[in-house]
């Protein structure tokens, strides 16, 4: 059976959820082979194997952390040369997309980014994408080379499927571009203890209506009662009320949770671009004409300062 390369997204060997989704999709197309770059391959291998990775090609070198993007392109290219896969799958993070694009250019292959679904087809994988602020769903195919596809988080539910997950060393020789962009320093983002925004099943977002950094505690409390992540509109981020890393929308993160709660957000097209594919959408806004209400499954026209705390209480009570 054909092999499908999956680039592993991990923090020191702790595999991130989108990678398990990639492995699940990869199994539709062939036998998944994971590519693990940096430290922690041995500990990652167990998880990768449980989700269907037959092999784990591992390479560890300081270059992966000390320089931007290019070393990983060299390594993934080496893996492509070693395996001759049918397809290469990468997570649709900013870095993932950049790696995928450069790999595709080098291997003279077609690239499809931000897939929301992949199906096997007679002429190679058929890739669904959501375009124009999710106004259209397209299907596309790669017509040249080895298809390189980046997939959005939450495209599928990860399903376990035991495979060997045998670790094999991948030998990589770095090209002259690898050390071009030095990472002089790196400050890891502090953990909030909440789920990762792009991976969360539930996201509660606040906008300009929240009216102040201190009031975001209301949004956080609702998110915590539901076990969700906290998001923000650009207006809230620009006002300095919440960190940019939580911005949802065209120039922030794209989320596709089971439930999206928008409080005090009008629903501008740039915000919708980042949340419109959410399964269930709920909004609280005091303006009944706010465009966000065009999207909702359930909407409350009301003051978030009344509704949000009361809802948090209701949720906590129902949980008992």
């Amino acid at each position: 059976m054909a092999e499908v390369l999956v680039l592993v997204d991990h923090l020191e060997g702790a595999v991130r959820k989108p990678t398990l989704e990639l492995l699940t999709l990869a199994r539709r197309l062939g036998d998944p082979v994971a590519v693990h770059l940096g430290p922690g391959a041995e500990s990652a291998a167990a998880t990768l194997g449980e989700h269907g990775a037959t092999r784990v090609l591992a390479a560890d070198a300081p270059e992966f952390a000390d320089y931007l993007v290019a070393p990983k392109v060299d390594a993934l290219q080496a893996a492509v040369e070693a395996v001759s896969p049918a397809v290469v799958l990468v997570s649709s993070s900013p870095e993932g997309k950049e790696i995928a694009a450069r790999l595709a250019l080098r291997t003279e292959s077609g690239l499809l980014t931000d897939a929301v679904d992949i199906a096997a087809g007679d002429e190679g994988p058929v890739v669904s994408q959501s375009v124009f602020a999710a106004a259209y769903t397209t299907t596309s195919r790669v017509t040249q080379g080895t298809p390189v596809i980046t997939v959005k988080p939450n495209a599928v539910t990860p399903e376990p499927a035991q495979a060997a997950g045998t670790v094999e060393e991948l030998s990589v020789s770095f090209g002259p571009l690898a050390t071009g962009t030095q990472v002089v320093s790196r400050t890891p983002r502090e953990s909030t203890g909440r789920p990762e925004l792009t991976e969360a099943a539930i996201v509660v977002s606040g906008g300009r209506g929240v009216n102040g950094a201190e009031n975001f505690a209301l949004i956080e409390a609702l998110a915590d009662s539901l076990g969700g992540a906290v998001g923000a509109s650009r207006a809230a981020v620009d006002a300095g009320w919440y960190p940019h890393s939580h911005q949802v929308g065209q120039t922030g993160k794209t989320v596709s949770p089971q439930l999206y709660v928008a409080a005090g957000i009008s629903g501008a097209i740039q915000h919708r671009a980042g949340m419109q594919t959410s399964k269930t959408i709920v909004a609280i806004n005091k303006d009944s004409d706010a465009p966000i209400f065009e999207l909702v499954d359930y909407g409350i026209v009301g003051d978030l300062f009344d509704v949000v705390p009361a809802l948090t209480e209701q949720v906590n009570t129902r949980k008992g």
């Binding site: 106004a135 259209y136 769903t137 596309s140 959408i281 409350i300």
Partner: peptide, 23 residues
């Protein structure tokens, strides 16, 4: 010179209008 081909484009079904109630 393109390496991919769009095979179909479907407008996303308009979200069926949900319920909006006044608090």
């Amino acid at each position: 010179g393109s390496r991919t081909k769009v095979e179909s484009a479907t407008p996303r079904p308009a979200r069926t209008a949900g319920e909006v109630v006044t608090d």
